[in-house]
Amino acid sequence: MLLLLLLQVLASCLWLGCSEVVTSFESSCPQFFFRETPPNEALEPESPAWICQRYKNQYYFATLYDRKRRIPVYSAYLYEPGPGKRPNTWLVEPQLMGSTYPKTMEKERTLLNYYNVSLEEISKTQAILQDYKNLTGLNRGHLNPNGHHADSSSRTATFTLTNIVPQNVKLNGGAWNNYEQQTMMKNTQGCKTTYVVVGAVPGNNYIAKGRVNKPSHIWSSACCEVDANHRKAWAVIAENDKNEVQLLTLGELEDVLTELYGRDQVYLFDSDCPRE
């Protein structure tokens, strides 16, 4: 019986995907950040979790997660769009319950059926599917969108609830979608590598009976390497109750986030990324 369980764990890790709650991005998955430099500590929540999101034994992006508010603070990834279908699955992060749980990005029912875990245990440190049911005017908004990835595995990896926030329906399907699909494609012309950090500012309202925070703002920033000596950057921010996106410089977004968070000055990228 024990052997069977171990084989099931191994199989799920190889085929469903793996993600790890780590002590730092710098030591575990720095490749998703320009010059291997994550945003500074000004954005860190009270109960942070650093997740290297891995699927089919490969890292695809990094997420700083807020265990208390049950939303991601930001997700960081490389912009590598390509053709493909939208995945039809949703995953959760077992290691948010503790390091003794598998390093696997799993479906809720897999944890319930094979790991002797209750839905209540899962829900203590993260959002679950039930939290996003019967919403009015909101839906599951990706920070790291599946459309910015080139193949089935990389797209599926974005369908974890640790990469999702309650987002205004009109914004998610309107102005924000236009930015993700049209503005990004236009702005990245001539770029060899584009690093993206996209996040959500916690708001004063919650869904799911106070379990999951509804962000007040959604924001995105990008740093593009044109060649060894030239880089460009841009950013946007949107209020999460309006179908409008404001285009900013990277420096302007960092200043806006500094004001919204009310802590130290926010820095999203290494200083070699242009702020103007």
Rank of each mutant, 00 (worst) to 15 (best):
residue 21 V to D: 09
residue 167 Q to A: 02
residue 167 Q to E: 12
residue 226 V to L: 13
residue 24 S to Q: 02
residue 36 E to F: 14
residue 98 G to W: 05
residue 216 S to C: 12
residue 25 F to W: 06
residue 49 A to V: 08
residue 61 F to K: 06
residue 146 N to V: 08
residue 191 C to L: 01
residue 154 S to F: 08
residue 14 L to A: 11
residue 248 L to D: 03
residue 8 Q to D: 07
residue 224 C to V: 06
residue 135 L to W: 10
residue 73 V to W: 03
residue 147 G to E: 06
residue 76 A to E: 03
residue 98 G to K: 05
residue 5 L to T: 02
residue 251 G to N: 02
residue 143 L to R: 06
residue 168 N to Y: 11
residue 132 Y to S: 01
residue 83 P to Y: 08
residue 1 M to S: 15
residue 46 E to A: 13
residue 133 K to T: 15
residue 146 N to P: 14
residue 45 P to Y: 09
residue 46 E to W: 01
residue 218 I to E: 05
residue 233 A to K: 00
residue 124 K to D: 13
residue 227 D to A: 12
residue 160 T to E: 07
residue 69 R to G: 03
residue 194 T to C: 12
residue 191 C to Y: 06
residue 15 W to D: 11
residue 140 R to H: 04
residue 31 Q to T: 07
residue 154 S to N: 08
residue 117 V to I: 15
residue 58 Q to S: 15
residue 82 G to D: 05
residue 164 I to V: 11
residue 170 K to I: 06
residue 103 K to M: 12
residue 243 N to H: 10
residue 127 A to K: 01
residue 21 V to E: 07
residue 39 P to S: 07
residue 259 E to D: 14
residue 114 Y to G: 01
residue 48 P to E: 03
residue 108 E to F: 03
residue 234 W to H: 10
residue 196 V to M: 09
residue 188 T to N: 15
residue 200 A to K: 11
residue 180 E to D: 11
residue 254 E to S: 01
residue 130 Q to D: 11
